Amino acid sequence: MFGKLEHELEMHVPASEVWDLFGTLRIGQFVEQEMTELFQKVELIEGDGGVGTVLKLTFAPGIPGPTSYKEKFTKIDNEKRIKEVEVVEGGYLEHGFTLYRVTFHVIEKGEDSSALKSTIEYEVKEEDAANASLVSIEPVANIAQLAKNYFSRNKAAKEAKQ
């Protein structure tokens, strides 16, 4: 069984700023700092932020489901501003999923405007099809909203200094 969920959020900053966060290792640090209610720790296991980089995400105590998983950067296209990350160990793979991929696509809308399109694609074995209900776009939508708030705070701080 294959599924796909999407979310898009306008960002009121240039696409280059959004990509500097989502296209690099900074997103792991950002998630660890800003989403403490969901994630306890985000660790760099191997790599330098390029394709092949592996991160281990450990959930905060009390979060239902797996306690952690490892994800690998499988595609980074700096020109098109697309990054794909796949779960390679633990997490959804322990619940019958054969694929769990998150794609972030930063879309330029104008000089000071962009959008972040987040997509989750998954494949789950037929005998575990009921587990598809575990997939939610909400965590990536929350990351996008926290990033938008972060960019707004930074923009306001810069304007206040001028």
Rank of each mutant, 00 (worst) to 15 (best):
M1D: 06
G3D: 14
G3W: 03
L5W: 10
L5R: 08
E6Q: 15
E6H: 12
E8K: 11
L9W: 00
V13L: 05
S16E: 13
W19L: 00
W19D: 02
W19Q: 00
W19H: 08
D20L: 02
F22P: 00
F22A: 04
G23S: 13
L25M: 11
I27G: 01
I27M: 02
I27V: 07
F30W: 06
Q33M: 13
Q33L: 11
E34H: 09
M35R: 08
E37N: 07
L38R: 10
L38W: 12
F39R: 03
F39G: 00
Q40I: 02
Q40C: 05
K41V: 10
E43P: 04
L44A: 01
E46C: 06
E46H: 12
E46R: 15
G47E: 08
D48G: 05
G49S: 10
G52I: 00
T53K: 06
T53N: 06
V54I: 15
L55N: 07
L55A: 11
K56Q: 15
A60N: 06
G62V: 01
I63P: 01
P66E: 06
P66T: 14
P66Q: 14
S68K: 07
K70D: 08
K72I: 03
K72T: 14
F73E: 06
I76A: 05
D77C: 02
D77P: 02
N78Y: 06
N78I: 05
K80L: 05
R81W: 00
I82H: 05
K83P: 05
K83L: 13
K83M: 07
V87C: 11
V87Q: 03
G90F: 08
G91M: 02
L93W: 06
E94S: 07
E94G: 10
H95E: 09
F97M: 05
T98A: 11
L99S: 04
Y100W: 15
Y100I: 01
Y100S: 09
R101D: 02
V102G: 07
T103Y: 02
T103P: 00
V106K: 00
V106I: 03
V106G: 00
V106H: 00
E108Q: 09
S113Y: 01
S114T: 07
K117E: 13
I120R: 14
Y122V: 07
E123G: 06
K125E: 08
K125R: 11
D128P: 10
A129P: 07
A132E: 08
A132G: 10
S133D: 15
L134Q: 09
V135H: 13
I137A: 09
I137L: 12
P139D: 11
P139N: 08
V140S: 02
N142E: 15
A144D: 04
L146S: 15
A147L: 00
R153Y: 09
R153M: 06
N154Q: 13
K158S: 09
E159A: 12
E159F: 09
K161N: 10
